[in-house]
């Protein structure tokens, strides 16, 4: 028990939580952002001006960060959880980029191979 007490200040005791009202406000924000995402999809200007992808990327990034920060408590939790998750995200991004590059630079027509069964 003495060891327990000695290590206590560094231990994981959860985190400070927000009020229910704040969680509901965050949910409303997420719903509004989703509605905006869908709305801009139907606005031709976003398609023709080339701003659709940047706009959708920003909006979904805001949703993503909001959920992990407040609902998953990464904003107030031990930073080591954050480092672990961000490492996973970085590796996932590299995997996406590497697969995209692999499929394109090797000029393999996977579609044709799929159809012909080759």
């Amino acid at each position: 028990m003495t060891d327990h007490a000695m290590h206590a200040p560094a231990e994981d005791h959860g985190q400070e939580h927000l009020s229910d009202a704040t969680y509901i406000k965050i949910a409303l924000l997420l719903v509004v952002i989703t509605a905006v995402e869908v709305a801009i999809y139907y606005v031709d200007w976003f398609h023709t001006s080339g701003t659709l992808v940047p706009a959708l990327a920003v909006l979904s990034l805001v949703k993503f960060i909001t959920v992990i920060s407040y609902y998953m408590h990464l904003k107030v939790d031990d930073p080591r959880y954050r480092y672990i998750f961000v490492c996973g995200l970085i590796l996932a991004g590299l995997i996406v980029a590497a697969l995209a590059a692999l499929m394109r630079t090797h000029k393999i027509d996977y579609a044709l191979r799929f159809i012909t069964g080759a």
Partner: peptide
């Protein structure tokens, strides 16, 4: 974190 990589490959 590992599941991020799993879904990353599927999305790619």
């Amino acid at each position: 974190a590992s599941d991020c990589m799993f879904f990353g490959s599927l999305i790619a």
